[in-house]
Each structure stands twice: as structure tokens, then as C-alpha cells.
Design a binder for these strands. Structure first.
Lengths: 208, 208
DNA sequence: CTCCAAGTATAGCGATCATTTTACTTTCGA
DNA sequence: TCGAAAGTAAAATGATCGCTATACTTGGAG
């Protein structure tokens, strides 16, 4: 049972009293884990950026692994990855929502392009954190499922197949952008997605 | 100037005398970095698997970073990533070579699917190792270039575009396989690649 | 006002990191 | 055969890791 008080984002069990240390920790984690990586971000750095003492941090989380898990969970329950949030926009028709996934992301301030936080976490942890691996898998599965729903809404002949294709394209765009340190692949993915979507909606026209 | 003696793989400057410590180190690196990740692999573990003393390791490489760079360089100069090696097979026609990229990889012994070593290195180092970032970018660029060559050979109307699409698909297949810990996306990529290649070769048939 | 949870700062824990050092042994071509 | 290079084992470097412990300060509800 989740109480929603005022307009404040408050999903996790309410930690009574106190002034938002937990929140600052998670916002610091969102910034540092995504930008510098999980291994490269130590607890000390986390407490510095969050303006939180070590003790407070460990009163909110039992371990760093738990912070990593909470960091990912937040992208699911509270602040979705921006691209994924596009799927929920009610000012766009379904086709436009699918394409909005591939809008060019803002260039990173430090010049280093970073990919999907979930995928990055999977790469960094390499199966050593079962909870993280589980969260990543779950997220990618529900993401593909959401894609299929929107694809169906858009009138795709085979929504599941289109969804898997777009998921593939999305992951490829992010990953290749990271490898090349350039967001050009997102544009390529956008164009390819457009033709795939249109082919999947328009009745088949190929010979045979 | 590089001397090629006998049939032995010997590209780096010849370290006279001695019995292959350098080689064992790099083979251990290939196994451990790829499977467990770069950060998770310590020098101690590297020396254990390579059956090499710490001192010997540091007589061959100035630092761990240098080992990481050499590990990646080896995939370029000596033992290409298996999928990339498919592009060079002379028993297949160009179209089949492009498709061979997406043959299902052998399932990992430990049950943890790992993606492209170059991409993984980019994610793990997050721009903190300039030489590594440079090697990853270079590799992805030349990979796409090779794709374009084979695409041209296969008679693609626009080889560069097809190459970028296939590169996107390849990266996506590997990355999503890592995230989902399942190689299913490689099959999806295979199917999509087939239609993309055929559409790119067959004269356009779409309305307009 | 007063109490207490939530917060602060900081020192220190053992473990592990990459790297260096000391001292000794093997291999092999000249 | 003999000397130098390449190898070995193992201890110690200082730094940093995640995490704990000690001692003190705040802020807001009853």
C-alpha cells in the first residue's frame, strides 16, 4: 500500500522524519553511476556529491550493491530513462511515439557518450550481482512488451516482431554510440526504424 | 618494419630469448577480461592464470592499462573476434558472409552471455583510458568499412547505408544478448539482416 | 522545552588494488 | 661453459576499496 502525500515523488516505504538523504544519495548515484560507471564510483565520491555522511548512507542502504539495485529500480518506478518515457507521451500518435525513441539525445557535458544505464550495469557487473542482472533482464523484457503494445496500437501486422526489431535497433543505437563515442548511430537507427515501422503497418508489397 | 619468421604468429617486436610469457599473459587477458570484465580482473588473477610472476608481467607491460590496450589490439592484428572473421571467409559468397555475422554464438560455459570485447571495454573504461577509447572507435569504424566493402561486393545499391544498418544490428544483437543474458536477439538480428540485405540488393519495389 | 531520530564529521577496519622490490633460478646462444 | 636475459617466488609499497565505529549536532513534532 503506497501513500501519496502532496505532490512529492514518494514510492519507497516512507522513511519518517529526516530530510531527504536517501533521495540525495539516489540522485548522486544516478549522476555518477551513469556518467562514470559503477566500479569507478566509490562510496566516498557518492557521499561527497550527495552531501551525506558515510554513516547516513549505510543507514539507508545495507551495501553498495543495494544502491546499484535501487539506482536501477528508480528508472523503472519513478524517473524512466528519457527515451523510454517517449512511449508514454499522449501528445503523439503511436507511430510517432515509436519514432520518438530515436530522437537524438542531448550531447553529454563531458564529451563522453554513455549508453543505456541498464545495459551498462549488465556489462559492468558481468553477472556477479544477481539482483542487478534480474533488474536489467526484467527492464528489457517489459520495454519490449511496451513496444509491442504501442506497435499494436499503431496497427502493425505483427507487433511482437516489430517490437523485437525496434528493441534491437534501440540497443544497437545506444551501444554503438558508446563504442564510437558519437550519437550518429541514433540517427541511422531513426531512419531504419521509420522504414521498418512503415513496412510493418502498410500491407505487404513485396513480391511473392 | 615487421619480420615474419617461420609460421609463428609474431607481430609485436620480437622479445628475444625466453619462453612466451608475454603470450600467456595476453591469452589469460583474453579469457579473463572478456569473461569477467576488466575491472573485476586483478593483476594477481592474471598472473595466476598466465602462470607468470608479477615481476615478469611488469617487465612485459608498463601497466594494466597497457595490457588492456594490447588485449584489444590482438583482436585487430592477430585473432579477430569470431563474428568479424566471418567477413573474410572465402568459402562463402558476399551475401552469405554478411549473414554469417549473425550465426548463433556458442553458449558461454558459465551461463553468462558477454558481448563484444571492444564495446564492453568502452563501457567499463568510460572514457578514462584514451588509448582504449581510440582502439574501440577505430575497430568499429574499420568494421563498418569492411561491411561496406562486402556489401558492395554483394551488389548493394547503397553499400554504405547497408553497412551502417548491419553494424547497428550487430551491436544491438550483442548488447541486447548481454542485457537479457540470452542469445535470442542474435536470431532476431539474423532474420532482420536477411530482409535488409535482400531489399538492398533487389531493385527497389516500394511504391513511389 | 525537550526528546529522539536523523543527521554530521572523522577515524579506523581488513581487504584488495596496482605496482615495486629483493633475492634466487632457469635457459640458452656465443 | 659461462654470462646475460628471462624467468621464478614472495614480501612490501601506498592507495583505495567497501564498510564500521565513536562521538557529536541538529530539527521538528509532541
Amino acid at each position: 500500500m503506497i501513500a501519496i502525500l502532496g505532490g512529492v515523488t514518494n514510492i519507497e516505504p516512507i522513511h519518517r522524519g529526516g530530510r531527504g538523504a536517501r533521495d540525495r544519495i539516489l540522485r548522486a548515484a544516478a549522476e555518477l553511476f551513469a556518467r562514470d560507471g559503477i566500479h569507478a564510483t566509490g562510496i566516498a565520491r557518492l557521499t561527497d556529491v550527495a552531501h551525506v555522511s558515510t554513516r547516513t548512507l549505510y543507514q539507508h542502504f545495507p551495501s553498495k550493491d543495494a544502491i546499484v539495485a535501487a539506482y536501477l529500480r528508480r528508472f523503472i518506478t519513478e524517473t524512466p530513462v528519457p527515451a523510454v518515457a517517449q512511449l508514454a507521451r499522449d501528445d503523439l500518435d503511436p507511430r510517432a511515439r515509436l519514432l520518438a525513441l530515436f530522437l537524438e539525445p542531448a550531447p553529454p557535458p563531458d564529451g563522453v557518450v554513455r549508453g543505456c544505464p541498464f545495459h551498462n550495469a549488465a556489462v559492468e557487473t558481468a553477472g556477479t550481482m544477481p539482483e542487478v542482472a534480474e533488474l536489467v533482464e526484467q527492464h528489457k523484457r517489459t520495454f519490449t512488451h511496451r513496444l509491442a503494445e504501442v506497435a499494436a496500437e499503431a496497427g502493425a501486422r505483427d507487433p511482437e516482431t516489430l517490437a523485437r526489431q525496434l528493441a534491437l535497433l534501440f540497443e544497437g543505437a545506444r551501444a554503438l554510440s558508446t563504442s564510437l563515442n558519437d550519437t550518429r548511430p541514433v540517427q541511422d537507427a531513426h531512419e531504419l526504424a521509420k522504414t521498418l515501422i512503415d513496412q510493418a503497418i502498410t500491407p505487404s508489397q513485396r513480391p511473392g
